[in-house]
Amino acid sequence: MDHKKYKEWIQLFLYDELTQKEKDELNNHLNDCNECNAEFEKQKRFISVLKNTPLSEPDQNLLSEARREFNAALKVEKTKRSSFSFPKINLSGFFFSPFRIAFNGAAVLAIGIFIGFLLFNRQNEITIPLIEEENSLASLEDKTQITNLRFIDQDPSDGEIEFTIDAIKPVHVKGKVSDPKIQNILTYSMLYEENPGVRLNAINLIKTNTVPNKDDEIKTALITVAKYDTNLGVRREGLKLLRIFSFDAEVREALLYILLNDENSAMRIEAINSLKEISEKGYSFNQQEISAFRENINKEENNYVKFQIKNVLQENKNEK
């Protein structure tokens, strides 16, 4: 008798990995075999005990940290590549105009990271030549922070060494909030600043001067923030500000995404309110959108959201 086979099948059976035919064969065998029956009970207990032993699951904090660190690493990665272009946020004007004297905070001068990825396919790293220019390092100024020193040539035998650094230099900015260059910086900060308070401030400042339906870059950035920012306050402000734009396909998609995916009911309420507004303005949702609404009704826990989804579906039905 091939007990080994059946003992393995017992394991597969408990994981629901056997075909019906195999299950029947195993059952027949278990009816006649005490040894395998005992093994079945043992394995069942073992699996059951392990099932009640949940290993660590990532919590929201860990996920947020992982995302944040990945985004930082991705920025560096992008400086190494030019094959992925990111046309949405373009700060080129800022970096190549007299305006660059400003930017209060840690605007990254360093070059490698910032200019390369944001703007052009330029040389990503700036080397500081120490050749005959006594002041070349001094030009970095006292407040410049030097990090990430990487040697290219650390052999001093010929009297020279060569390395690259990242230089982060604070710059002071003053300008009109309506200035497109300022808006670009704020948009960038809204997306990438580490501190949620700064991201929130950036949104609030953008709010004061955004021209509805004209700033596509801002709209795209707001959609990203509303969908993905790890901070609820930032997501919510992003979503609120999104309402000033026309509810085109892109915005509708974002609202539906939030309605279906955001864990926070306040976000879902905000999203369904906007979608209801769209419906009241006479827009007929397409079949795919209707399916998304229907899918959400079944899993929605918030009664208000559920009620409003039903209203939207009803209105949409009446329209047709």
Binding site: F84, S85, K88
Partner: peptide, 24 residues
Amino acid sequence: NGDESAFNELVYRYDRTVLSIALK
């Protein structure tokens, strides 16, 4: 084609599972 938000969405669609496997 260079759409950053699409890349983000792909990441965020699956990253919890990736982190879960890694953590375990």
